[in-house]
Amino acid sequence: MWDYTDKVNDHFKNPRNVGKIENPDGTGEVGSLACGDALKLMFKLDDKGRIKEAKFQTFGCASAIASSSALTEMIIGKTLDEVEKITNKDIAEYLGGLPKQKVHCSVMGREALEAAIYNYRTGKKWDKELEGEVVCHCFGVTDKEIERVTRENNVQTLEALTNACKAGGGCGNCLPDLQKIIDRVHGEMGAAAVPEKKPLTNLQRIHLIEDVIDREIRPALRQDGGDLELIDVDGNTVKVRFRGACSGCVVSAITLKDVVEARLKDNVSEDIRVEEVK
């Protein structure tokens, strides 16, 4: 059973802006039946160049529907320059986080947005194959897309890449090529994000810990009215303080081990130990 946030469930059960727009200014269609999810996004601009109306149709699971619905809410009232900056992480964060296997649903949203803007600007139908070379043939994912997803999500592992954009989730023949792209992107990104295999410097390690806490742990705690603050990193020991409903919660010790420590072990390194500072 998925641990969907209340916001995901709400957008799934009561999706906003479902449907089509007559004579839209931009239309973006991504995904396919065979891939298991697909999204058609349409928007119309007002005379100031802001999106005044956005509608969607989605074939897919609960988080695909919720991501699409959230996206329409996020873009209405904004200019194209503003919405162009929306990443899949923004969509996931808007929903209070997505299970890691479902990150690709937010990527589909961002892609549809990109496709719709392309359609508005060129009048042509967006074809991602024009923008790069297909690397994962099972799911039709291009190198450009893989690079972008790796960069925007600080993807470190093949598994995380597959979760984010499906690449490598089928026959697995492309896995060596995917690894090369991940390595190359991290090379280009420099010190900020080094693949897991290479030892991290202390600074990189602290950045990564901060990133995981902000991206994965705090949204989950906030769901239950709690929060957490990073106090210090001392070698492998991460010191944190619980906030809100978490402080004084009878199960905070379990949260500390099963949520905070487990996520950090998964994402940073196995030898991380988390201590609570009261």
């Binding site: 799934f12 298991g36 074939f59 699971c61 609960a62």
Partner: peptide
């Protein structure tokens, strides 16, 4: 046809 199983399952679950 044309709809996805998890979405059906969760709506039935609801």
């Amino acid at each position: 046809d044309f709809i996805e199983g998890e979405a059906i399952l969760l709506m039935l679950d609801d």
